[in-house]
C-alpha cells in the first residue's frame, strides 16, 4: 500500500506556486496516486500569502493538512517557511528558497522582517534545505523558473520516478519554456 503524503507549498502571490502544484499533481496522477489539492485564492492583487495543500495516497478524503502533519513543506519565501513551520511533521523535510519578500507592514515600517528566520527554522526542524532558486533559475536562463528548481528538489525526495516527473513537466509547461524548465528541474534535482 502507498504511504500517504502531505505536501504544503507556501509562498507569495506571483511566485509560481500554482504551476508547481499542477506539475506535482500531474506527476502524482501518472504515478497512480489519489490526490486532493486545496488552494485558497484570495483577491486578484499580488503580494498576499499563497498556500496550497497537496495530499497524495491510496485514497485521500480531506483536502486539508492538519498542523504537525506535513511530510514536506516547500517554501518559496523564507519568512513563510517560518510561519508555516508548525504544519511540519517532527521528522518532516522543509525546502526553503533563500528569498525575502517584505510584506506591506514591513514596507511601511509598521513591522520588522525577521532577518534570522532561516536560522530559526534550521534550529527547529530536523531536515532543512536552503537554496537560492532565483539565482539558479537566472543561470538557467529565466528567473521565472525558480519554482521549477524547487520542484526538482521536491521531486528528489518523493517516491515518484524521475521519468514521471519529466513527463509531467512536459505536459504542464508551455512548449517555448520547456528547455529552460528542464534545465532548472535538473539543477534542483541534483542538489
Amino acid at each position: 500500500m502507498r504511504k500517504s503524503l502531505n505536501i504544503l507549498l507556501v509562498g507569495v502571490g506571483g511566485q509560481g506556486t500554482i504551476l508547481a502544484t499542477r506539475v506535482l499533481a500531474k506527476a502524482a496522477q501518472e504515478a497512480g496516486y489519489d490526490i486532493k489539492v486545496s488552494e485558497i485564492k484570495g483577491m486578484a492583487q499580488r503580494g498576499g500569502s499563497v498556500v496550497t495543500q497537496v495530499r497524495l495516497g491510496e485514497k485521500v478524503y480531506s483536502p486539508l493538512i492538519a498542523e504537525g502533519s506535513a511530510d514536506v513543506i516547500l517554501a518559496f519565501e523564507k519568512m513563510e517557511a517560518l510561519r508555516w513551520l508548525p504544519y511540519l511533521k517532527q521528522d518532516g523535510h522543509i525546502i526553503i528558497n533563500d528569498q525575502a519578500i517584505a510584506p506591506v507592514p514591513v514596507l511601511t515600517g509598521a513591522a520588522v522582517y525577521p532577518e534570522d528566520c532561516l536560522e530559526r527554522v534550521k534550529q527547529l526542524a530536523c531536515h532543512t534545505m536552503v537554496v537560492d532558486a532565483l539565482n539558479i533559475a537566472v543561470d538557467c536562463g529565466n528567473p521565472k523558473a525558480a519554482n521549477v528548481v524547487l520542484m526538482g528538489m521536491l521531486a528528489k525526495r518523493l517516491p515518484i520516478t524521475k521519468e514521471t516527473w519529466l513527463k509531467a513537466l512536459k505536459a504542464r509547461v508551455p512548449e517555448r519554456f520547456i528547455d529552460v524548465n528542464l534545465k532548472a528541474f535538473e539543477q534542483g534535482f541534483n542538489l
Binding site: 492583487q45 503580494g47 500569502s49 510561519r83 510584506p103 506591506v104 507592514p105 525577521p114
Partner: peptide, 27 residues
C-alpha cells in the same frame, strides 16, 4: 493523528508580520 494536539514546532513566540493583500504597484 487528528485527536492528539500534535507536537507542533513552535515557530515563533512573537507573531510574524502579516502578509495582507495590497493594492498592486501602480494601482
Amino acid at each position: 493523528e487528528y485527536l492528539a494536539q500534535p507536537e507542533v514546532i513552535a515557530a515563533s513566540e512573537t507573531p510574524l508580520p502579516g502578509r495582507p493583500p495590497v493594492m498592486c504597484a501602480g494601482c
